[in-house]
C-alpha cells in the first residue's frame, strides 16, 4: 500500500474517491481490518474518518438524518434515535463490543452489505433512504432498492454514501427487533428480524419486515407483510405471517447455523412481533 488520503470535507472525499476508484474506502475499518491478513493490500486508502461532514445526526419534523460516518456509539446514545427509532439504537448496541462500536460506522455497514450486517434489517423496516454523492452530483436511493445480491449494491464506482434518512414513524407504529447470534454478545447473526407494524382501529394497516442472515442479502419479507396487512395483531395473524414467510425465504446451512433452524426462528420472530404489536397500548 502506498497511497493514503484523509479528506476533511465531503467534497474532497468525493473527489479523492473518484480520482482513486481502486483504493479502499475506510469508514471505521471494523469490517475491512478483520480480513487484512487474508488478502493483498489495496493500492491506497481513502480514510473518511477525518471528515466532520460525514458525522452527526440532525432532525426535521419528519425525518432523522444520520451522516454516513456516524459511529454506532454516537447512534446508541442519541436521544432522537432512542426516542423515535429505538430499534436502531438497540441493533447498534449489539454490534461487537465498545471498541467496535466506537469505530464502526453505519455507512460502512451499509456499503459492506453483508447478509448479516446488523443494522440492515432495521433500515429495511424503517424504510430508510440513502443519499449518495459523486462528482456527478447527489441522488437518493431507497435502502430497499440498494442491495442487488451477495455483497453487491447499486453504488457506482465513484459514489459514496453521504447520509441515511429515516422517516419518523407515524403514530401507531410498533417497532420490533431481535438478533439471534452464535452467543449472547459479540457474535455474527444466525437470524435477524426487524419490524415496523402500524396498528389502527385494532387492525394492522401496514407492516414492514426486514430480515438478515436468511438470504444472500438483507431482505424485506413482502409476502409475510401482505399476510399481516388488514388483520388484527394476534396469534392467528402471526401464524399466517409465518406460513407466508416459509414460501418466500430459502435460508442456507453454513458453518454458523442450519437452514431449517433459520427458517423456523425467522417465522417465530415475526409471529412474536405481530403478537406483541397487539399487546401494546
Amino acid at each position: 500500500m502506498t497511497g493514503y488520503l484523509r479528506p476533511a470535507t465531503l467534497a474532497d472525499a468525493v473527489a479523492a474517491h473518484a480520482a482513486h476508484p481502486d483504493w479502499m474506502v475506510l469508514a471505521g475499518g471494523t469490517d475491512l481490518m478483520v480480513n487484512a491478513n487474508h488478502r493483498s493490500a489495496p493500492p491506497g486508502i481513502v480514510d473518511l474518518c477525518g471528515c466532520a461532514e460525514l458525522r452527526g445526526i440532525v432532525r426535521d419534523a419528519d425525518t432523522i438524518r444520520i451522516a454516513a460516518g456516524t459511529t454506532w456509539l454516537d447512534i446508541i446514545g442519541h436521544e432522537w434515535v432512542v426516542a423515535q427509532v429505538p430499534i436502531l439504537a438497540a441493533a447498534a448496541g449489539e454490534i461487537g463490543a465498545l471498541q467496535i462500536q466506537a469505530r464502526g460506522t453505519i455507512g460502512g455497514n451499509i456499503v459492506t452489505s453483508s447478509p448479516v450486517g446488523d443494522s440492515l434489517p432495521v433500515l429495511l423496516a424503517l424504510d430508510a433512504t440513502l443519499e449518495l454523492a459523486s462528482p456527478r452530483g447527489r441522488r437518493d436511493v431507497p435502502y430497499r432498492s440498494f442491495t442487488t445480491g451477495y455483497r453487491t449494491t447499486v453504488l457506482a464506482a465513484d459514489e459514496l454514501i453521504a447520509a441515511i434518512t429515516i422517516p419518523v414513524p407515524a403514530a401507531g407504529t410498533r417497532l420490533a427487533w431481535r438478533k439471534v447470534g452464535t452467543r449472547a454478545a459479540q457474535s455474527i447473526s444466525k437470524v435477524m428480524a426487524a419490524a415496523a407494524i402500524h396498528v389502527e382501529h385494532g387492525l394492522i394497516s401496514w407492516a414492514r419486515f426486514g430480515l438478515g442472515a436468511v438470504a444472500e442479502r438483507p431482505i424485506r419479507a413482502a409476502a409475510a407483510e401482505a399476510a399481516a396487512t388488514g388483520r388484527p395483531p394476534d396469534a392467528d395473524t402471526g401464524r399466517a405471517v409465518a406460513v407466508a414467510l416459509a414460501d418466500e425465504i430459502r435460508p442456507i446451512t453454513d458453518v454458523r447455523s442450519a437452514a431449517d433452524y433459520r427458517l423456523e426462528v425467522a417465522q417465530s420472530l415475526l409471529m412474536r412481533f405481530v403478537i406483541n404489536a397487539g399487546k401494546l397500548p
Binding site: 452467543r183 454478545a185 459479540q186 458453518v255
Partner: peptide, 16 residues
C-alpha cells in the same frame, strides 16, 4: 477445521 477463526469458533463471553 472449517471454523478456524474467532468469528466462527465460538467461546463464551461474559454475557454468556
Amino acid at each position: 477445521v472449517a471454523n478456524a477463526n474467532m468469528t466462527n469458533c465460538i467461546v463464551p463471553t461474559f454475557a454468556d
